[in-house]
Amino acid sequence: MASSDGIRTFTPSSLATLRGHFTGLDTSLHGSKWDQLWTENFAPWDRGVPNPALDEVLTERKDLLGSVKLEGGKRKKALVPGCGMGYDVLLLAAHGYDAYGLEISENALKGARKTEAGSAGKEEYAVRDKGVGKGKVTFLSGDYFKDDFVKEVEGDGKFDIIFDYTFLCALPPSLRPAWALRKSQLLSPTGRLICLEFPSTKPVSSGGPPYALPPVVYEGHLPRPGQELAYDSEGNISTDKLGEEAKDGLVMLAHIKPKKTHQVINIGVDESGKVLDWVGVWAHK
């Protein structure tokens, strides 16, 4: 199912199809199944443009993110795992970052390169600061949980910005400890992790993908990367059983309610247009 223009939402039918596509499958097979969906042009999550909440944070919260360039003038590197059609990668480049989009789906990467090829002259990808200029765009094929793609990244393979959106919600809860550990490993010592928390109000018991991601999921896992956390029978984190935060854990710098996000009714916004998503900005201790 391809996305259409205007306000879009996951229909009950597309949600059921998406859940059924992964039911009972070993997680090692998920990559090929996502590629199959892209091949079939089934992408109800695809909005066709960058998320305005990311643009807002990049524009208005430089107090959290700092300069786009490092000392010496070298550009900071940004990563978007599960980048899909590449919209947010191109937005990060427009803000001046050398931006990397990572995808396990070759068909999604074909779409991302097509998006880049057609991006010239589009307002959403215009250079935000002419003094800084536009960063380089690189799309990588690889598995987020493995190191192969890191060999193609300039420098030490760590990133100054990591943007996570429609990525964690695509992963089954069993992968959350590894997801958090990987974030800790890939984020540079002074880097910032930007998590657009989506879907934050979806019932946890409804399953996925997309899996419900209330703020407590991030608050539980990111300070304890790699640790298995206790969940109750309904799928909620047992907050009374959380252990000590790890030395390599991340700390939240800000929890932001964005002015805008993608218009996904009853998932990103409610029926009145009120934003349901949150943005968390994280860093190393």
Rank of each mutant, 00 (worst) to 15 (best):
D55G: 11
P199C: 01
K146C: 05
L90S: 06
S14R: 08
H95L: 00
L196F: 08
G226W: 09
I162G: 05
I237C: 01
K136R: 13
V251F: 09
L187W: 06
P223K: 05
V150K: 12
G72S: 00
T9N: 13
V153Q: 02
N107A: 12
S67P: 13
G131A: 04
T261Y: 04
G142I: 09
Y144D: 00
T11E: 00
W38Y: 10
Q227V: 12
E103S: 14
G96Q: 02
N266G: 05
A43K: 09
T27R: 15
W34P: 00
T39M: 03
L140T: 09
Q263S: 14
P214H: 04
K202T: 09
G273P: 07
S3K: 15
H284R: 05
S13C: 14
E124P: 07
G226P: 02
G111Y: 02
L168E: 06
S238L: 07
L90P: 04
I267K: 12
T23D: 14
V251Y: 12
T115L: 04
T11N: 07
H255Q: 10
E197L: 15
A170T: 09
G280A: 05
Y211G: 07
L91D: 03
S67C: 09
L168H: 11
Y231I: 13
L242T: 14
K260F: 07
N236P: 05
S174C: 10
E228C: 12
Q263I: 05
Q263A: 13
L213I: 13
L70Y: 08
F159D: 04
V281E: 03
